[in-house]
Design a binder for these strands. Sequence first.
DNA 1: ATGGTGACTCGCG
DNA 2: GCGCGAGCCACCA
Length: 126
Amino acid sequence: MNKPSFYVQVYKVAQQIPPGKVTSYGRIALMLGHPNAARAVGYALSALNAPDSGEPYTSATVPWQRVVNNQGRISIHHRAHAAQEQANLLRAEGVMVDAHGRIDLNIYLWAGLHLVELDDILSGKG
DNA sequence: ATGGTGACTCGCG
DNA sequence: GCGCGAGCCACCA
């Protein structure tokens, strides 16, 4: 099998975020060993397939809503509908999102994985 | 290979 | 706190 693409790595990490917690694009990039690839992480999530596409990674199987920017703010500017859906999904899991789409990272931040765990997940054992 | 495109981030003012 | 400009990166045509 080929080494999973960067996108797939992003999806797998996102799937480790527990409900009611959030992390940032930059942190995921850092976990994957690409400290400056935050933009690519956001791009990966924006490229998620539709739930009925039959693909393994879709907006239904990847908790994309648990990824916000490093300031704890919902960061979708060009897709207002998606931004609102993200806030709704997060509130449904008990995350407090204020009117400005702001989340208190001191409360809800998911710090991330240790390298050993990450290695297991990316290799398929997780 | 080259250039365009973002759901990013940091530093300034 | 907010807006801008400048890096940085993976993907796709």
